[in-house]
Design a protein around this nucleic acid. Structure first.
Lengths: 157, 157
DNA sequence: TATTGTTATACTCTATAACTATA
DNA sequence: TATAGTTATAGAGTATAACAATA
C-alpha cells in the first residue's frame, strides 16, 4: 500500500493511509473499542484507565494526576465516583496525615482483570488477520514509539 | 523485542509490550498528542474531530452522529458550541425544511488545516526515529487493521 | 513556607426521554 | 406514521482558583 514513492494522490483513500492518518485513525479505532468494552461494564474510558493504572500501584493523588495527565482536582472527583462505586479506596498513609494512597478494592481488581481480558480478546480478534510475525512487528513498532516518546519528554524508563 | 517465544515474563516492562498493550498504550499516546495540539487552540479532541470530519463533508445531524459515534442529541450541543465559536454553520437544505447540513466556516476550515498540520508535524517528530521503510510498514499495518475493522463491522469501503 | 489534597464554580461532553415540525 | 432535529434533564469529566490541613 504505502510505497517509498509515498506522495499521497488527490484521490488517496483509506486504502493508502500515510503514517500520520494511519496512527490517528488507529488510535480512534482502539479508543472506540475500549469505550465499547468499558460501557458493557458501565465504565467510562477514564474510569477504566484509573482502575488499569491502579492494578500494580497505590499512588497518592498527585502521582495519580501525573499518571493520568489530569489536574489534581479532577482526580479528586474521579476517585470520589470510583470510591462511591466500590472500585477503589483511599488509604491513610502512616506517618503523613495529609497524604492518602489510592488502591483498588477486591471488586475493583476483579473488574480491572475482566475488562483487560475482554480488551485483549477484542484486540486479538482485530489483529487476527495478521500473521504472527506481522503482529510481532506491530508490537515492536508500537513499543519503539512509546519508548521514543517517553525519552523525548524526559520520562524515566 | 517481541519474539515468537512471546510469553511475557513476570518482569515484562514497556520494553517488551505485546500487541495488545502496545496498541492500547500507543492509542493513549496519540490521543494525548492530539489533546495537547487541540488545547493550544482551545479545542477539545471532540471539537477537533468534528472540524476534521467536516473538512470534506457537509452531513446532516444524523449522519454526523453516525460518523462521530454519538447520539443525535449530543451532536446538537456539539454543533451549538462550535457554531457559537464561529467554526461551523447549519445550512438549510433546499427542498427539505426539517433537515440541515453542517459545514465549516472559512475560520473553521483554516483552523482544521492548522491543527492537522501541527498534528502531522508532531507525529512526524514522534516517528523520526524510524526508518522510512519502518514508517511505511507501520502505515500499512495500521491501514490493514482499519480496513479489517470496517469490514468486520459491515461498514462500506 | 511548601506540600497534599479538597472545595467552589463553571464549563464541555454525553445519554435518555420527550418534544416539535416536517415528510 | 416515520423522520430530522431540538429541548429538558441529569450526570460524568475537566480546569482554575481558592481553601484547609499538615509538613
Amino acid at each position: 500500500m504505502a510505497t517509498t514513492a509515498g506522495r499521497p494522490s488527490a484521490t488517496a483513500s483509506v486504502s493508502d493511509l500515510g503514517v500520520v492518518d494511519g496512527l490517528v485513525q488507529l488510535s480512534f479505532l482502539i479508543q472506540s473499542l475500549l469505550g465499547r468494552v468499558a460501557a458493557e461494564h458501565d465504565l467510562s474510558i477514564v474510569q477504566t484507565r484509573l482502575i488499569g493504572v491502579l492494578r500494580d500501584r497505590e499512588p497518592g493523588m498527585l502521582e495519580l494526576a501525573r499518571l493520568l495527565e489530569l489536574e489534581k482536582s479532577s482526580v479528586t472527583g474521579l476517585v470520589d465516583r470510583a470510591e462511591r462505586r466500590g472500585l477503589v479506596q483511599r488509604l491513610p498513609v502512616t506517618g503523613n496525615r495529609r497524604a492518602v494512597h489510592v488502591a483498588l478494592t477486591p471488586h475493583g481488581h476483579a473488574l480491572a482483570r475482566t475488562v483487560a481480558d475482554e480488551v485483549g480478546a477484542r484486540i486479538a480478534a482485530l489483529t487476527s488477520g495478521l500473521s504472527q510475525s506481522q503482529r510481532n512487528h506491530l508490537a515492536d513498532l508500537a513499543t519503539r514509539l512509546i519508548l521514543d516518546d517517553a525519552a523525548g519528554r524526559g520520562l524515566p524508563f
